[in-house]
Write a protein that binds this DNA or RNA. Structure first.
Lengths: 159, 159
DNA sequence: GTGGGTGCAAAGTGTTTGCAAGTGT
DNA sequence: ACACTTGCAAACACTTTGCACCCAC
Protein backbone atom coordinates (compact mmCIF):
# COMPACT_ATOMS: atom_id res chain seq x y z
CA UNK A 1 0.00 0.00 0.00
CA UNK A 2 0.90 3.60 -0.32
CA UNK A 3 2.83 2.70 -3.40
CA UNK A 4 2.75 5.52 -5.95
CA UNK A 5 4.06 4.93 -9.42
CA UNK A 6 7.31 3.53 -8.11
CA UNK A 7 7.16 0.84 -10.71
CA UNK A 8 7.63 3.54 -13.30
CA UNK A 9 10.79 4.77 -11.64
CA UNK A 10 12.00 1.22 -11.43
CA UNK A 11 11.40 0.61 -15.09
CA UNK A 12 13.13 3.83 -15.96
CA UNK A 13 16.12 2.79 -13.98
CA UNK A 14 16.30 -0.59 -15.64
CA UNK A 15 16.09 1.14 -18.98
CA UNK A 16 18.87 3.42 -17.84
CA UNK A 17 21.00 0.38 -17.14
CA UNK A 18 20.32 -1.16 -20.49
CA UNK A 19 21.03 2.11 -22.21
CA UNK A 20 24.45 2.14 -20.61
CA UNK A 21 25.03 -1.48 -21.47
CA UNK A 22 25.02 -2.45 -17.86
CA UNK A 23 23.67 -5.75 -16.75
CA UNK A 24 20.70 -6.60 -14.67
CA UNK A 25 22.10 -9.01 -12.19
CA UNK A 26 20.29 -10.76 -9.39
CA UNK A 27 21.98 -8.48 -6.87
CA UNK A 28 21.03 -5.33 -8.69
CA UNK A 29 17.52 -6.62 -9.00
CA UNK A 30 17.31 -7.11 -5.26
CA UNK A 31 18.69 -3.64 -4.62
CA UNK A 32 16.44 -1.98 -7.14
CA UNK A 33 13.38 -3.78 -5.89
CA UNK A 34 14.20 -2.64 -2.41
CA UNK A 35 14.74 0.96 -3.40
CA UNK A 36 11.54 1.27 -5.31
CA UNK A 37 9.46 -0.62 -2.83
CA UNK A 38 10.02 1.90 -0.10
CA UNK A 39 9.02 5.48 0.10
CA UNK A 40 11.35 6.13 2.96
CA UNK A 41 14.72 7.72 2.94
CA UNK A 42 17.47 5.24 3.62
CA UNK A 43 21.17 4.91 4.17
CA UNK A 44 23.60 2.66 2.36
CA UNK A 45 23.69 0.35 5.33
CA UNK A 46 19.92 0.09 5.52
CA UNK A 47 19.73 -0.61 1.85
CA UNK A 48 22.23 -3.39 2.30
CA UNK A 49 20.24 -4.91 5.10
CA UNK A 50 16.96 -4.72 3.24
CA UNK A 51 18.41 -6.00 0.00
CA UNK A 52 19.94 -8.94 1.76
CA UNK A 53 16.51 -9.95 2.94
CA UNK A 54 15.67 -10.46 -0.70
CA UNK A 55 18.97 -11.87 -1.79
CA UNK A 56 21.57 -12.88 0.73
CA UNK A 57 24.33 -12.66 -1.83
CA UNK A 58 24.16 -8.86 -1.99
CA UNK A 59 27.37 -7.42 -0.66
CA UNK A 60 28.16 -4.04 0.76
CA UNK A 61 30.41 -3.33 -2.19
CA UNK A 62 27.63 -3.90 -4.66
CA UNK A 63 25.33 -1.61 -2.78
CA UNK A 64 27.95 1.10 -2.82
CA UNK A 65 28.58 0.48 -6.49
CA UNK A 66 24.91 0.62 -7.36
CA UNK A 67 24.07 3.75 -5.44
CA UNK A 68 25.92 6.05 -7.86
CA UNK A 69 24.02 4.47 -10.71
CA UNK A 70 20.76 5.17 -8.98
CA UNK A 71 21.62 8.79 -8.41
CA UNK A 72 23.07 9.19 -11.87
CA UNK A 73 19.83 7.96 -13.32
CA UNK A 74 18.02 10.68 -11.43
CA UNK A 75 15.65 8.21 -9.82
CA UNK A 76 17.24 8.57 -6.41
CA UNK A 77 18.69 11.59 -4.74
CA UNK A 78 21.61 11.71 -2.40
CA UNK A 79 21.21 13.91 0.63
CA UNK A 80 23.88 14.90 3.04
CA UNK A 81 22.60 16.41 6.25
CA UNK A 82 26.00 16.59 7.81
CA UNK A 83 25.37 13.40 9.70
CA UNK A 84 27.92 10.66 9.47
CA UNK A 85 26.20 8.91 6.64
CA UNK A 86 24.30 10.03 3.61
CA UNK A 87 20.61 9.53 3.08
CA UNK A 88 19.07 8.46 -0.16
CA UNK A 89 15.67 9.54 -1.31
CA UNK A 90 13.72 7.42 -3.79
CA UNK A 91 11.02 10.03 -4.32
CA UNK A 92 12.73 12.21 -6.87
CA UNK A 93 11.18 10.65 -9.89
CA UNK A 94 7.91 12.31 -9.01
CA UNK A 95 9.09 15.38 -7.15
CA UNK A 96 12.45 16.46 -8.47
CA UNK A 97 12.61 19.69 -6.51
CA UNK A 98 11.34 18.94 -3.11
CA UNK A 99 13.00 20.09 0.06
CA UNK A 100 13.51 18.55 3.43
CA UNK A 101 13.05 19.40 7.00
CA UNK A 102 14.73 17.20 9.54
CA UNK A 103 14.18 16.95 13.27
CA UNK A 104 17.42 17.46 15.09
CA UNK A 105 16.45 14.93 17.70
CA UNK A 106 14.87 11.99 15.94
CA UNK A 107 16.14 12.49 12.38
CA UNK A 108 12.56 12.47 11.19
CA UNK A 109 12.58 13.85 7.68
CA UNK A 110 9.58 15.49 6.10
CA UNK A 111 9.47 16.50 2.49
CA UNK A 112 7.82 19.56 1.09
CA UNK A 113 7.62 21.48 -2.11
CA UNK A 114 7.33 25.19 -2.52
CA UNK A 115 7.06 26.93 -5.82
CA UNK A 116 7.73 30.24 -4.21
CA UNK A 117 11.00 29.10 -2.79
CA UNK A 118 12.01 27.58 -6.08
CA UNK A 119 11.25 30.82 -7.79
CA UNK A 120 13.25 32.83 -5.29
CA UNK A 121 16.15 30.47 -5.66
CA UNK A 122 16.15 30.99 -9.37
CA UNK A 123 16.07 34.76 -9.04
CA UNK A 124 18.85 34.87 -6.52
CA UNK A 125 21.06 32.49 -8.42
CA UNK A 126 20.68 34.49 -11.56
CA UNK A 127 21.54 37.67 -9.74
CA UNK A 128 24.69 36.05 -8.43
CA UNK A 129 25.65 34.69 -11.81
CA UNK A 130 24.92 31.05 -11.28
CA UNK A 131 22.81 28.51 -13.08
CA UNK A 132 21.01 26.28 -10.68
CA UNK A 133 21.85 22.64 -11.03
CA UNK A 134 20.31 21.45 -7.86
CA UNK A 135 19.19 22.97 -4.66
CA UNK A 136 18.49 21.75 -1.26
CA UNK A 137 16.90 23.54 1.55
CA UNK A 138 17.43 21.81 4.79
CA UNK A 139 15.65 23.07 7.79
CA UNK A 140 16.67 21.65 11.10
CA UNK A 141 14.29 21.99 13.95
CA UNK A 142 12.32 20.28 16.59
CA UNK A 143 9.16 18.48 15.68
CA UNK A 144 6.01 19.04 17.71
CA UNK A 145 6.38 15.72 19.41
CA UNK A 146 9.80 16.63 20.63
CA UNK A 147 8.59 19.97 21.85
CA UNK A 148 5.68 18.53 23.77
CA UNK A 149 7.05 15.28 25.04
CA UNK A 150 10.71 16.10 25.33
CA UNK A 151 11.63 13.54 22.72
CA UNK A 152 10.22 11.88 19.64
CA UNK A 153 8.47 8.58 19.28
CA UNK A 154 10.58 7.79 16.35
CA UNK A 155 13.77 7.97 18.30
CA UNK A 156 12.70 5.15 20.53
CA UNK A 157 11.76 3.01 17.57
CA UNK A 158 14.66 3.80 15.30
CA UNK A 159 17.01 0.87 15.58
CA UNK B 1 41.49 45.50 4.26
CA UNK B 2 37.96 44.28 3.99
CA UNK B 3 38.04 43.42 7.64
CA UNK B 4 34.59 43.93 9.16
CA UNK B 5 34.13 43.74 12.88
CA UNK B 6 35.87 40.39 13.09
CA UNK B 7 37.67 41.56 16.18
CA UNK B 8 34.31 41.60 17.91
CA UNK B 9 33.63 38.01 16.99
CA UNK B 10 37.09 37.08 18.15
CA UNK B 11 36.60 38.79 21.50
CA UNK B 12 33.27 37.11 21.89
CA UNK B 13 34.84 33.77 21.29
CA UNK B 14 37.59 34.37 23.82
CA UNK B 15 34.95 35.41 26.31
CA UNK B 16 33.10 32.22 25.48
CA UNK B 17 36.23 30.25 26.32
CA UNK B 18 36.70 32.00 29.61
CA UNK B 19 33.10 31.53 30.48
CA UNK B 20 33.53 27.80 30.04
CA UNK B 21 36.74 27.80 32.02
CA UNK B 22 38.70 26.89 28.96
CA UNK B 23 42.21 28.15 28.46
CA UNK B 24 43.63 30.47 25.97
CA UNK B 25 46.68 28.63 24.80
CA UNK B 26 49.18 29.69 22.20
CA UNK B 27 47.73 27.15 19.77
CA UNK B 28 44.18 28.32 20.23
CA UNK B 29 45.33 31.87 19.83
CA UNK B 30 46.90 31.03 16.50
CA UNK B 31 43.78 29.20 15.35
CA UNK B 32 41.43 31.92 16.49
CA UNK B 33 43.53 34.65 14.94
CA UNK B 34 43.47 32.74 11.70
CA UNK B 35 39.75 32.19 11.75
CA UNK B 36 38.87 35.78 12.42
CA UNK B 37 41.41 37.22 10.07
CA UNK B 38 39.81 35.68 7.05
CA UNK B 39 36.44 36.23 5.56
CA UNK B 40 36.70 33.11 3.49
CA UNK B 41 35.17 29.76 4.08
CA UNK B 42 37.75 27.20 4.99
CA UNK B 43 38.22 23.52 5.69
CA UNK B 44 39.84 21.94 8.71
CA UNK B 45 42.92 21.21 6.68
CA UNK B 46 43.22 24.78 5.45
CA UNK B 47 42.79 26.08 8.94
CA UNK B 48 45.59 23.80 10.07
CA UNK B 49 47.89 25.04 7.34
CA UNK B 50 47.13 28.69 7.97
CA UNK B 51 47.39 28.35 11.73
CA UNK B 52 50.73 26.65 11.43
CA UNK B 53 52.05 29.66 9.60
CA UNK B 54 51.45 31.59 12.80
CA UNK B 55 52.48 28.88 15.20
CA UNK B 56 54.19 25.75 13.98
CA UNK B 57 53.20 23.85 17.08
CA UNK B 58 49.54 23.71 16.09
CA UNK B 59 48.55 20.13 15.43
CA UNK B 60 45.76 18.65 13.42
CA UNK B 61 44.21 17.30 16.60
CA UNK B 62 44.02 20.72 18.17
CA UNK B 63 42.39 22.17 15.11
CA UNK B 64 39.78 19.44 15.17
CA UNK B 65 39.29 19.94 18.86
CA UNK B 66 38.90 23.69 18.53
CA UNK B 67 36.48 23.66 15.64
CA UNK B 68 33.56 22.39 17.73
CA UNK B 69 34.21 25.15 20.22
CA UNK B 70 34.07 27.71 17.47
CA UNK B 71 30.78 26.38 16.17
CA UNK B 72 29.37 25.99 19.66
CA UNK B 73 30.11 29.62 20.36
CA UNK B 74 28.08 30.53 17.31
CA UNK B 75 30.92 32.54 15.83
CA UNK B 76 31.59 29.99 13.11
CA UNK B 77 29.20 27.83 11.17
CA UNK B 78 29.78 24.36 9.89
CA UNK B 79 28.58 23.65 6.38
CA UNK B 80 28.32 20.31 4.72
CA UNK B 81 27.82 20.45 1.00
CA UNK B 82 28.15 16.73 0.57
CA UNK B 83 31.74 17.13 -0.50
CA UNK B 84 34.35 15.02 1.23
CA UNK B 85 35.15 17.63 3.83
CA UNK B 86 33.18 20.22 5.70
CA UNK B 87 33.49 23.94 5.23
CA UNK B 88 33.54 26.46 8.00
CA UNK B 89 32.16 29.93 7.71
CA UNK B 90 33.43 32.69 9.99
CA UNK B 91 30.79 35.19 8.90
CA UNK B 92 27.96 34.12 11.12
CA UNK B 93 28.55 36.65 13.83
CA UNK B 94 27.22 39.35 11.53
CA UNK B 95 24.84 37.39 9.35
CA UNK B 96 23.40 34.49 11.28
CA UNK B 97 20.90 33.48 8.63
CA UNK B 98 22.69 33.70 5.36
CA UNK B 99 22.57 31.04 2.71
CA UNK B 100 25.09 29.68 0.27
CA UNK B 101 25.40 28.89 -3.34
CA UNK B 102 28.32 26.76 -4.41
CA UNK B 103 29.72 26.12 -7.86
CA UNK B 104 29.82 22.41 -8.53
CA UNK B 105 33.03 22.79 -10.44
CA UNK B 106 35.28 25.18 -8.57
CA UNK B 107 33.69 25.06 -5.12
CA UNK B 108 33.31 28.80 -5.23
CA UNK B 109 30.89 29.74 -2.49
CA UNK B 110 28.83 32.89 -2.51
CA UNK B 111 26.73 34.01 0.40
CA UNK B 112 23.40 35.67 0.24
CA UNK B 113 20.57 36.65 2.50
CA UNK B 114 16.92 36.67 1.66
CA UNK B 115 14.24 37.77 4.02
CA UNK B 116 11.59 36.33 1.76
CA UNK B 117 13.09 32.89 1.89
CA UNK B 118 13.47 33.09 5.63
CA UNK B 119 9.85 34.02 5.92
CA UNK B 120 8.74 31.17 3.70
CA UNK B 121 10.82 28.76 5.68
CA UNK B 122 9.11 29.83 8.84
CA UNK B 123 5.66 29.43 7.33
CA UNK B 124 6.38 26.01 5.93
CA UNK B 125 7.98 24.71 9.07
CA UNK B 126 5.05 25.82 11.13
CA UNK B 127 2.66 24.13 8.76
CA UNK B 128 4.61 20.90 9.09
CA UNK B 129 4.74 21.10 12.85
CA UNK B 130 8.36 22.02 13.30
CA UNK B 131 10.11 24.81 15.09
CA UNK B 132 13.03 26.08 13.10
CA UNK B 133 16.32 25.77 14.85
CA UNK B 134 18.52 26.46 11.89
CA UNK B 135 18.16 26.42 8.19
CA UNK B 136 20.46 26.17 5.31
CA UNK B 137 19.70 26.60 1.72
CA UNK B 138 22.41 25.29 -0.46
CA UNK B 139 22.21 25.81 -4.13
CA UNK B 140 24.59 23.96 -6.34
CA UNK B 141 25.15 25.25 -9.80
CA UNK B 142 27.58 26.43 -12.37
CA UNK B 143 28.99 29.90 -12.12
CA UNK B 144 29.09 32.15 -15.17
CA UNK B 145 32.77 31.57 -15.63
CA UNK B 146 32.25 27.87 -15.84
CA UNK B 147 29.44 28.28 -18.28
CA UNK B 148 31.41 30.56 -20.55
CA UNK B 149 34.89 29.19 -20.30
CA UNK B 150 34.20 25.57 -19.52
CA UNK B 151 35.88 25.83 -16.17
CA UNK B 152 36.51 28.31 -13.42
CA UNK B 153 39.51 30.47 -12.71
CA UNK B 154 39.37 29.50 -9.14
CA UNK B 155 39.82 25.85 -9.85
CA UNK B 156 43.16 26.44 -11.45
CA UNK B 157 44.34 28.46 -8.45
CA UNK B 158 42.92 26.29 -5.75
CA UNK B 159 45.75 24.17 -4.47
C1' DG C 1 32.81 -16.23 -25.18
C1' DT C 2 33.52 -11.84 -23.28
C1' DG C 3 33.16 -7.73 -20.94
C1' DG C 4 30.90 -6.27 -17.27
C1' DG C 5 29.77 -7.72 -12.18
C1' DT C 6 30.57 -9.79 -7.75
C1' DG C 7 32.31 -10.71 -2.91
C1' DC C 8 35.98 -10.27 -0.10
C1' DA C 9 39.21 -7.98 2.35
C1' DA C 10 42.48 -4.42 2.23
C1' DA C 11 43.10 0.42 1.46
C1' DG C 12 41.47 5.32 1.73
C1' DT C 13 39.81 9.56 3.74
C1' DG C 14 38.39 12.78 6.94
C1' DT C 15 37.84 12.96 11.78
C1' DT C 16 38.22 11.37 16.67
C1' DT C 17 40.56 9.67 20.70
C1' DG C 18 43.85 7.43 24.39
C1' DC C 19 47.80 8.60 26.50
C1' DA C 20 51.71 10.63 28.70
C1' DA C 21 53.77 14.98 28.93
C1' DG C 22 53.05 20.04 29.04
C1' DT C 23 50.97 24.53 30.60
C1' DG C 24 47.57 28.37 31.71
C1' DT C 25 45.43 30.16 35.72
C1' DA D 1 49.11 22.42 42.12
C1' DC D 2 45.28 21.09 39.31
C1' DA D 3 42.69 20.62 35.60
C1' DC D 4 42.69 21.63 31.15
C1' DT D 5 45.63 20.96 26.66
C1' DT D 6 48.69 19.24 23.54
C1' DG D 7 51.01 16.24 19.84
C1' DC D 8 51.40 11.85 18.28
C1' DA D 9 49.79 7.92 16.42
C1' DA D 10 46.43 4.54 16.64
C1' DA D 11 41.64 4.04 16.13
C1' DC D 12 37.20 5.03 13.79
C1' DA D 13 33.27 5.03 10.45
C1' DC D 14 31.99 5.25 6.04
C1' DT D 15 33.19 4.44 1.43
C1' DT D 16 36.17 2.87 -2.35
C1' DT D 17 39.07 -0.36 -4.74
C1' DG D 18 42.22 -4.44 -6.43
C1' DC D 19 41.72 -8.93 -7.52
C1' DA D 20 40.29 -13.42 -9.00
C1' DC D 21 36.28 -15.72 -9.98
C1' DC D 22 31.52 -15.44 -12.05
C1' DC D 23 27.64 -14.69 -15.10
C1' DA D 24 24.26 -11.92 -18.09
C1' DC D 25 23.97 -11.08 -22.75
Amino acid sequence: MAAPDRSVAKKRFLAFLQHKNLRITAQRKAIVDTVFNTEEHFTAEQLLKWSRQKDKSVSRATVYRTLPLLTESGMVHEMDFGKDHKFYDPNYADHPNHNHIICQDCDKIVEFESEKIEQLEGEISQRLGFSVKSQRLQITGTCEELKRLGSCKKKACAT
